[in-house]
Design a protein around this nucleic acid. Sequence first.
DNA 1: CAAACCGGCGCAATCGTTTGCACATCGCTA
DNA 2: TAGCGATGTGCAAACGATTGCGCCGGTTTG
Lengths: 348, 348
Amino acid sequence: MENKLPTITEIARRLNISASTVSRALHNHSSIGLRTKMRVQELAKELNYEPNQTAIFFQQRKTFTIGVVLPELSEAFFSAAISGIEDCAYKNKYTVLMGQSHDSEEKEKQIIETMKSHRVDGLLVSIANKTNNYDHFESLKRYNIPVVFFDRIPDMPDIHYVACNLISGTIQAINFLIKKGHRIIGMLNGPEKLAASKEREEGYIQAMKKNRLKFDPTLVVNCDLSTDKVYAATEHLLKLKRKPTAIVVFNDYVALDAVQYARRQKLRINKDICFVSYANLPISHYTAFPPMASVEQFPYLQGQKATETLLELLSNKDSGQEGTNTYYKIILESQLVIKENNIADQVL
Amino acid sequence: MENKLPTITEIARRLNISASTVSRALHNHSSIGLRTKMRVQELAKELNYEPNQTAIFFQQRKTFTIGVVLPELSEAFFSAAISGIEDCAYKNKYTVLMGQSHDSEEKEKQIIETMKSHRVDGLLVSIANKTNNYDHFESLKRYNIPVVFFDRIPDMPDIHYVACNLISGTIQAINFLIKKGHRIIGMLNGPEKLAASKEREEGYIQAMKKNRLKFDPTLVVNCDLSTDKVYAATEHLLKLKRKPTAIVVFNDYVALDAVQYARRQKLRINKDICFVSYANLPISHYTAFPPMASVEQFPYLQGQKATETLLELLSNKDSGQEGTNTYYKIILESQLVIKENNIADQVL
DNA sequence: CAAACCGGCGCAATCGTTTGCACATCGCTA
DNA sequence: TAGCGATGTGCAAACGATTGCGCCGGTTTG
């Protein structure tokens, strides 16, 4: 029953020709006679021949596989991103090898090792929260394995990346709040060293300046994104003497927790306190107190663009012209989405 | 700059010994002298040697890769499942190749082909909604590539699978509703041919019987899960002469839409009409009108169990004893989770 | 008529690793 | 001194596909 997969040699044996002829026949090589081609292709189909990719990978030093390393598959942002990655890779006949770092630097390193030994052609990486040391990426460079970072970008020179410009989105968000009459606006930001956090703060500062409002650093708090810390950070903001009437929150999940906290304090959402956040997750449609607006970061698109970029790097590499020291830095503009039909505004 | 990856042959050349000795030294083979071992391992470390997996895969006819095929990566259920799969695979030194069918049979077939040619050691599959024909799975069997299905199980004999027993969960759900005083209970079910739909209906029927209530088939409607169809199905149920006071809905997402529809009809949720659903998604905590209860299906655990099962099949295969015609049919019990702290019950 | 050419095909090397087997060297025993 | 078992190492085949090169026979060309 052990149905051996047919090989090119087997076909050659049956037809009394050489393996090289079979190979060329299957590739429609011009130097093979029509009769032979036909015979080969017929038998190949009959035997259900399929080339052994592992042999080809080995021989060609190319696996048509890209590795994806990201913190958490079950987070909506990343699952949308990987969906975009997989779709794009699939269209280009690449497959996707996956690993999640769970935000641990150690695991990230190990995954990169595994992927390297699997000889992925290239990597897409969204780095772990806790990663401080970037040696493992440097080593990839030495071995000429291209990497495109997306969303969570390390602070390294000479890298390719795709990211969303959060500055513009943040400015839009602040402008929106100011137009609504808010003057004291807090920011519940993520971990300080994330570029994403820095951009949010940068946007915040710029927007305040443009609106001729004073930038008050005490209104910006950083925290990691665990529920406890979010509660604490929200508490901190709400207990300030200059108490904000609106808070811009790191993302929709965090906003849910912040809202939760505020409600426990008997604050009326959208009256006593307003929230604006990032991500624009579809679930917000259904939540009791969605943020008034959310900055869309287009994860699917980011995944897609990152994949396209990587594939381009790979094709340049194949065609020999590698030395080009240009680095792709692709910035998507974020986009503030204002929520209509806020359920909380409706009658129960 | 083109830093060639070091090979076993390179190490052998430098040390003036043979490649086979190097190979054995690196594997700590007992027949290699201590001195030689040391020298080899030292140089290997110095050169940062890493075995070329593609060569090993090729040689050993084993890739330490499992393929995962599922409908939609960005759905919470599947992203949790794949998270479990990846974690479990990683622990056992396997990597995960991914493909999403987007519920298309055609794409599912193509992905299976790709994975076959990538020589994955085995597959984990949750089948596409629209898959009717199972030939592509039969062919895997012929080639002795083990498959473990999870969650969405095809109606085939002699397969391995991991699934959640929804009957018990459904019975719990109905019992819960009956205890709350409901007598006319509707069911908004998924596509008829899904085993998951059948189980829900089966549970519904059993629960009604046990409670000595008449089973009224008109109270059960099937629909695909698009928003439009859900609206239509909800409308249908709510316009019945024997109008239900509670509805058991296919999953939390669908429940959100059903709730949406009911509210547009000015129905008061949890008063005029109650909902119970499946999945127990964390977002339900934050939604305005979460179902009163939800049947947890443990996606992460399912992924994990499915992976463990597959790995066991693989290790049996390696140790030669394949013929065993036993099929793993692993059933997890689902679990009704009753939502406390229903936001809708609270004061705005 | 010889030379050049070309279509059609096979030979053999290559990729990096593993592994069965043979071989050499050693000390030890009978 | 022959024989033996360890011990340590190398040889070579194998995995399946690709590809540069060369060979053979036939046709065209000068």
